[in-house]
Design a binder for these strands. Structure first.
Lengths: 203, 203
DNA sequence: TAGATTGTTAATCGATTAACAATC
DNA sequence: TAGATTGTTAATCGATTAACAATC
């Protein structure tokens, strides 16, 4: 199991490599890739070294080989489906987010407790919260995005866990108590933005 | 200048402390605060120690004092205004995001190059991209959120920098070239989500 | 006092980076 | 060959955590 930071870098390498490939290049040097991803070239080579990806001392690395190898490591399935719980504005923005498609990631359904928001005929259907548990087990969904109000987050999280969800991207501004081993990624845009103001004011 | 990770922790302490305060408590022990923020109690005490916040060996820390001291460090101004460039769905979701208000953060305007999206009468006005530079200098805005398509990101970033922006939260999936010292926080939800699928599949 | 908690030093841990030999 | 780049080891750096004395 590769650690989080390295996985994030690998995904970014891959995204940049695809772009370079589209521009017609077939090979790339570690220092170029480093520059385009904001890393040091030694970091790039170290990462590749650990993945048993080898380059050529004259012409650098083969881009297609890199992409294939990274995808191999990422163990991408044909379809990577996530559900989203709490269908406010952020949720709807994520449902329409185009970048997901490119990586074979799809948000397959949304859930909400408000009857007015239910709308099973949308491209991404929004279903009643009561149907969530059944949907998760029927469709073997493993990843969920949590965009419910803070006060409901823990309760919904517990349900998700109960239903078999293994990883959660949590936008609710609360620390989730997890007695098991669900992978949780916290996204707190307000905290991040507030920190930017600190650095601006502190300079 | 305090480093980023510590600032992020401080902001989270503060948010949790406010919640505890509302529930009627006036003092808190480091281990409680640690639990509620997902940190170790030694981390909490170490952070406080570096900020010259002292507790009481019998009754822990005074919550009001903690909040005041953290706010003092964060150098919060009365109004912390950010603009947002590229008014797609994510931008609109952020414009309505309630959590910002609580921290005296406001998104004061949006900008877009598409004439159809212009709408100066909204609660958060959406203005033409041409007016951005003038707006930034007139209102002394220092922070911007970048939600334009990837191919426009560098160009818009350069303009923002030119106009006096000092910190950028970038949602566009590209590494920005910055010859100066603008603070950049990258938010890449697709990368984060993709990494979750890795960990789920790799277990 | 006994027990619990703070405050701080020292140890640990892990990740990044520098240095450099190998080699194309 | 000379120059450039890879691949890897060793050094550095910084942050977290363990340990523990002080003390309420």
């Amino acid at each position: 199991m590769i650690n989080r930071k390295r996985i994030i870098r690998l995904i970014r390498y891959k995204n940049v490599l695809k772009r370079i490939l589209n521009s017609g290049e077939e090979r790339v040097f570690s220092n170029i890739l480093a520059e385009l991803t904001g890393e040091k070239s030694t970091q790039v080579r170290k990462d590749f070294s650990l993945l048993k990806i080898t380059g050529n001392k004259k012409s650098g690395y083969d881009i297609n080989e890199l992409i294939d190898r990274i995808n191999e490591i990422l163990i991408k399935k044909d379809k990577n489906s996530a559900i989203i719980v709490g269908c406010g504005k952020i949720a709807k923005a994520l449902m329409d987010y185009q970048n997901f498609k490119e990586e074979n990631i799809e948000i397959c359904a949304g859930f909400d407790s408000n009857p007015k928001k239910i709308s099973p005929s949308r491209p991404v259907p929004i279903l009643p919260l009561e149907d969530m548990n059944k949907y998760i087990s029927d469709n073997e969904v493993k990843v969920a995005i949590l965009t419910v109000p803070a006060r409901f987050a823990q309760e919904v999280f517990d349900q998700l866990k109960e239903s078999g969800i293994l990883a959660v991207m949590n936008f609710a501004p609360v620390t989730l108590k997890d007695t098991g081993d669900v992978i949780i990624k916290y996204i707190n845009l307000d905290v991040e933005l507030e920190s930017l103001f600190y650095f601006v004011n502190a300079r």
